[in-house]
Each structure stands twice: as structure tokens, then as C-alpha cells.
């Protein structure tokens, strides 16, 4: 889903660069106030964690594999704004050191995978958590939010490409959303399992001050 340079037209990438930069500035200011100086090592180490977790592949239908993204996981553990920082830092390093995603399209990639997946994912988690009742409430909410966060990010990517005239919307949107539905199921199962383990091993970590 990392868009390389040259795939978006100027109006699209400039707009998204500005939007993402604004979001990061907001996140920096808010997290500094809520978590304080302790946040810097925490967010840095967790960014390294997300990076390593993204290298773990899981099987998707038909012998292909997808990899974990971790947007909702970061948002549920840290709150949406700190999660934006964590994911953005991961994407910045992927862009500059690994050439995963372009420089001009960095804003678009941060928007899709760092902002939409975390912020939308977090609020989906909250809303679904209120709608469902019963013991498995939290797991259902996490699963649905993770699944949809992947589908929404992929759709945003398709829409940006279509607006730039790179691909036709009618083909790209269903294709991207469909494929990422399958990947999203994996993301959902893994995120539920991760949070289940964390709540057994270190339940206090689920109560980190959220920003």
C-alpha cells in the first residue's frame, strides 16, 4: 500500500503532505502535554516494535501473504494521537531508509496508514464497543475496527490514485477494498490475540495514559 513517487499528481500529494504535517504537529503538541517527557523513549521504542511486527507475514487466501500493520493496535494501546506519531515515524523511516513509499507521496502514505488507520480505527473501536454487549465486547470491537481500518486505508489509497488519474476508480476501489478485506481479517485476528496476551501478561499496560 506504500505509494511510490510519480503515482500521484501534484495537487493530491501537496494537499496530503500539508494535511499530514498538520496532523503530526497536532499530535506532537498533544502528546507532549499528556504523557510528558517520558513519551519520547516510549514512542521511539514502540515505533521500532511496530516496524519489527510489520516484518511478520501471515497467510492470506490463495497462497499469498499479507503483513500486520498495527494501526489499531497502537491506537488502542496508546490513544489515537500517540499512535499517529508512532505510525508516522515508522513510515518516515520506511521512506528514507528502505525506499518503501516515495518522498513526495510520504504525506499520502502517512495519511492512509498513519492517520486514517489509527484515528478512524480508534473511533470505530469505541463506537462498536458501545454497540455490542456481552463478554467478548472488547474483542469484537477490536476485530471490527482492525478489519475496517485496513479496508478504509486501502480505499483511501485507491481514491487518491483515482483522483490523480493513475487508475480508474471503478476498478481500483473494489479491487483494493476486496483484497484488503482478506488481509484485514488477519489483522483483526492478530490484533485481538495481541491485546488478549497483553491483558493477561501486563494488564496495566492497557491503562497507559492516553493522548
Amino acid at each position: 500500500m506504500h505509494i511510490p513517487d510519480g503515482f500521484l499528481d501534484a495537487k493530491t500529494w501537496v494537499t496530503l503532505d500539508v494535511v499530514s504535517a498538520g496532523f503530526i504537529a497536532l499530535a506532537v503538541r498533544k502528546t507532549r502535554r499528556v504523557i510528558g517527557e517520558k513519551q519520547t523513549p516510549l514512542i521511539g521504542v514502540l515505533a521500532a516494535f511496530i516496524f519489527a511486527a510489520q516484518m511478520i507475514n501471515f497467510p492470506v487466501a490463495g497462497g499469498t501473504s499479507g503483513h500486520f500493520m498495527g494501526g489499531v493496535l497502537a491506537a488502542v494501546l496508546l490513544g489515537p494521537l500517540s499512535a499517529v506519531l508512532v505510525m508516522s515515524v515508522v513510515l518516515i523511516v520506511q521512506c528514507f531508509v528502505f525506499q518503501d513509499g516515495g518522498v513526495t507521496t510520504l504525506g499520502a502514505n502517512i495519511f492512509n496508514m498513519g492517520i486514517i488507520s489509527t484515528v478512524a480505527g480508534y473511533y470505530l473501536f469505541r463506537v462498536v464497543g458501545h454497540l455490542v454487549v456481552g463478554d467478548g465486547r472488547r474483542s469484537v470491537a477490536v476485530f471490527v475496527a482492525s478489519l475496517l481500518s485496513i479496508v478504509i486505508s486501502a480505499s483511501a489509497c485507491a481514491i487518491e490514485l483515482a483522483v490523480s488519474g493513475t487508475v480508474p476508480l471503478g476498478v481500483a476501489l473494489p479491487a483494493m477494498a476486496g483484497v484488503h478485506m482478506l488481509i484485514g481479517i488477519g489483522e483483526g485476528i492478530i490484533t485481538v490475540a495481541v491485546l488478549g496476551l497483553v491483558s493477561r501478561v501486563r494488564p496495566d499496560l492497557l491503562e497507559i495514559e492516553k493522548a
Binding site: F49, I56, I190, A193
Partner: peptide, 12 residues
């Protein structure tokens, strides 16, 4: 999921 969870706890 358990692996990634352990990775998180250790990182934290």
C-alpha cells in the same frame, strides 16, 4: 498474535 504481543510487552 501472541508473538507480537510478547514483542510489545518486551519493547514496553
Amino acid at each position: 498474535g501472541n508473538m507480537i504481543g510478547m514483542l510489545f510487552v518486551r519493547s514496553y
